[in-house]
Amino acid sequence: MADELMLEIVTPEKLAFSDIVGEVTLSGSEGEFGVLIGHAPFLSSVKFGELNYTKDNKKTYYVAGEGYAEITNLKATVLVESIEKVESTLKEEAQKSKESAEAKLAGMNKEDADYEKAKSALDKANTRLKVVEKV
């Protein structure tokens, strides 16, 4: 698969990534989807989760925050609130953050003001872990 698709990842902090890649896979709010060159114009919201792309037939994994993706036939622009590259060395850390999120949630009631926050933190930790395991 030749690398032809322009991928741009933009976050509030910076233009995080800009390069020509092969295929991009995103976690849309309606499910995962892949983008190749020549894709129909497409606008989708993106939920917190995995983002990966291939370049030289190698996959690189990211965890992306909420946002949306705008796809035209030559270019994919991903606007997300956060992005982090995932490497296998992060596994321990991800495991730890999952455990601490779990521990925090265990000590809470559903009525607690921070319950939702802790729950989403745990969800995020789980997602991150899942992605790390793929690397």
């Binding site: 509030p12 709010s29 309606e30 497409f42 919201s45 949306y68």
Partner: peptide
């Protein structure tokens, strides 16, 4: 500038806008 392009929306335009408004607010506040 590309507003003339007909996009496929996912989810629907309405839901997408509902998704983007909070982002838009955060951008203005930030």
């Amino acid at each position: 500038p590309e507003s003339s392009i007909e996009y496929i929306y996912e989810p629907s335009e309405e839901q997408l806008l509902a998704h983007i408004i909070p982002m838009y607010l955060r951008v203005l506040i930030y």
